[in-house]
Design a protein around this nucleic acid. Structure first.
Lengths: 328, 328
DNA sequence: CTGAAAGCGCTTACAG
DNA sequence: CTGAAAGCGCTTACAG
């Protein structure tokens, strides 16, 4: 910076003010400074700025798995919103491990970042409450922190599940089973709640089956379909589960939608290519990322105290064929 | 830091040395310092460290699209390798736009990062040569920079294409058409070269068809299959193309593998669920990310001058049914 | 509208 | 083995 100041024949403060678009810099002087900057290829040192208490212009995002279809779309959107605001984004994956998550948050916080976007591996981790009350602005995505006051951006899990189940009911189904994997996750629990709520209103029997992996899925499903009151429809509450169920039904020779109808929660482009194409509840993944990033950025600017706005994004029923529709 | 020094009854230098695991610190003193650090919850200020010329312990990764199945797996692996080395990763997407890419590299460089991992939007961008000769270590992933000396990590595109085509030839195919999208990308060009090389050796006719989008695909494919010498096999040179071709063949009522065989380059988990399951050449996406990240980290440590090692990772033929195999 | 002084929190020599 | 001094490159007050 001093070189620039010397080249432009001014003091370092004038250079600083010019760079930061500060008012009260004579147009003439500013021009000279800018010329010097260009000529010397000068770039302000970010670290020095931060040291004087400026914003780091960086946010951090931590998701369970960056390779997951849903989170990769969310991450892309976050990154894009950050860039549009002149921010850079740290991206880290916790692999669902709270201790990795904690370490990454710690590292980001001291790197430093102006704010953090988080999809918690476990909504109940105690350390999250400390983080939530810390000085770094935090916004959770998809899964709120339990027992803490933070902003969160989520989707209509409960209502979405109801829409899915209502659709099956409208097809005349009477025995709708809810299939889940990772039922400890808060969004999944809400979907189950939506499923139960809907069936209770319709006065239909409820049945929930938890799948841990494909091996057990085989046993569980074959027992389910051999039983006297086998289900006439399945509601798979998350993506991993939908795929697992589809694979298993195939190996068991149970055909969708002939033998059983199916609607899943969480949509993937590839579902349109399956036979039959899978009817699902689509979550607005990109919007989830965009909205949460903008909310965080806004929170950083406002420097207001801890808020706890809960933004809930709507979901859409993507009607395809696994639910029994479109069959001529 | 001064507070810690005071609390421990030592000078700031001793604190600094203790933190950095410097030798020549009396065990007694170190213990007192560590106690003070713990008690005061002291965390070194990263920005101040950088300002004194230390490594930033940060790398940057720029991919065209973070939501893409392939790049998201690469990114996850990069992020993981970075974390294991105590590094944090900036993640940015260029959306295939060289000007965004350039701006992101610029921003990362001055933020600063110790090194950059890049999947170039365009291997021929002139500015890349400047970046390649710059002081920030650079490793390209998947697509090397043309006319510049850098380390790059790639996959066996050419050999992979040959394996795919040879497999089709082994099925007795005589008229194998190569279908491509984004044929300007360096890896795709190499796959085409492998295709041509293989057919030349086998003394079979070559035909290459470029698809731009699904609308034109419809016309192009129907014309192709209406022609007198319609192909008996297709080699789709990239993922987007494989999907586009599969969709189009379905709407045209052309059945795989009955009417035409198909092998694609680039594998996606979902291909196993399609009917028929798609035979592909699988690229080691995670290994690509891991290897390139480790190479970059190593380059950062060695501080040697610009190198240009070209690492080429092997690919695998995933035999499923679209190639005519497994049919009983 | 402009500049000289002081300081952000660390580390690199340089002495002891 | 330990510490006092100087400086990394910027910015925030404070004067003019």
């Amino acid at each position: 910076m001093e070189d620039v100041a010397r080249a432009a024949g001014v003091g370092p403060m004038t250079v600083s003010r010019t760079i930061n678009g500060h008012p009260y810099v004579a147009n003439e002087t500013a021009k000279k400074v800018r010329a010097a900057i260009r000529q010397l290829g000068y770039r302000p040192n970010h670290a020095a700025r931060i040291l004087t208490g400026q914003l780091s212009k960086a946010i951090g995002l931590i998701v369970p798995d960056l390779a997951d279809t849903f989170f990769s779309v969310v991450s892309h959107a976050v990154q894009e919103a950050a860039r549009e605001a002149g921010y850079l984004a740290w991206l880290a994956a916790s692999n669902g491990d709270p201790s990795i998550e904690e370490a990454q948050i710690e590292q980001m916080t001291h790197h430093p970042v102006d704010g953090i976007l988080l999809v918690p591996a476990n909504s109940q981790s105690k350390y999250l409450k400390t983080v939530a009350t810390g000085s770094t602005p935090l916004v959770t995505i998809d899964r709120p922190i339990e027992g803490a006051v933070t902003d969160s951006v989520e989707v209509e899990n409960r209502a979405g599940a109801r829409i899915a189940v209502e659709h099956l009911i409208s097809h005349g189904c009477k025995k709708i089973t809810c299939m889940v994997m990772n039922s400890h996750l808060q969004p999944v629990r809400q979907r189950i709640a939506g499923y139960e709520e809907c069936l209770r209103h319709a006065n239909l029997p409820r049945r929930k089956v938890t799948l841990s992996d494909e091996a057990t899925a085989q046993k569980v499903l074959s027992a389910l379909f051999d039983s006297p009151d086998r289900p006439d429809a399945l509601f798979t509450a998350n993506n991993a589960c939908t795929i697992c169920v589809i694979k298993t039904l195939r190996t068991l020779g149970i055909e969708v939608p002939k033998d059983v109808l199916l609607v899943g929660f969480d949509d993937v482009d590839f579902y349109t290519l399956l036979n039959p194409p899978v009817t699902t509840i689509r979550q607005p993944a990109a919007e989830l990322g965009r909205t949460s990033a903008r909310l965080l950025l806004q929170k950083i600017r406002s420097t207001s105290s801890t808020s706890s706005a809960r933004t809930v994004l709507p979901v859409t029923l993507m009607v395809r064929e696994s639910c029994g529709c479109h069959r001529s």
